[in-house]
């Protein structure tokens, strides 16, 4: 059962008008109507600095984004605060937003990233590719299960990107 004292944010980001770049918002669009207890959903074109203030309101955040090169169909891993350079102008990485949330607001939020493999980026298109849609379905099933169970760290060991492999199978439905 969900621990209602734990406030979880699932934050999907990407541009839905750029093909598979919209995987993050697509997952949120599918997850939000389920009204899972203790879960809030947010989506935007990209992460930005003001998201640090939002993160400070939650215990756990799961960033969801498309991945151009990662394992199929998705991977799931911890996000550590990052001071790395590479700010692309007006957007930020999950690690940078977490670092800012800690630095500016003293947030202790635990952060995770769910990277869903996509294939077609940079082209204007309103729909996901067929393969990305299939990956999205598996990622959605996984996200529902992880949020319900709140066993995030367990799943990072199973689907962490460092292992060089993603989730190779559909997560088993909850008993």
């Amino acid at each position: 059962m969900s621990d209602l004292a734990t406030h979880i944010l699932v934050y999907g980001y990407g541009n839905p008008g750029r093909g598979d770049d919209g995987l993050g918002p697509a997952l949120v669009a599918a997850l939000e109507p389920l009204h899972t207890a203790g879960l809030a959903c947010e989506s935007d074109y990209q992460l930005s600095v003001e998201d640090a203030a939002t993160l400070a309101e939650y215990d756990v955040v799961v960033f969801v984004d498309a991945d151009m090169n990662g394992p199929e169909p998705f991977w799931f891993d911890r996000v550590e605060p990052s001071r790395e350079l590479g700010f692309s102008s007006h957007s930020a990485t999950p690690g940078q937003v977490v670092a800012l949330a800690r630095e500016m607001f003293g947030a202790q939020v635990k952060a995770y990233a769910l990277g869903i493999r996509g294939y077609h980026f940079g082209e204007l298109g309103e729909s996901l590719s067929e393969q990305a849609s299939a990956n999205l379905a598996l990622a959605l099933a996984f996200a529902q299960r992880a949020v319900r169970e709140q066993h995030f760290d367990k799943y990072t060991r199973q689907f962490g990107v460092d292992s060089g492999r993603g989730c190779a199978c559909d997560p088993q439905p909850e008993a």
Partner: peptide, 17 residues
Amino acid sequence: YDPCLSCATHALGQMAL
């Protein structure tokens, strides 16, 4: 100039100098 050199396709795995 605060340029916007391309657009917001930004999937995980990019960014370097």
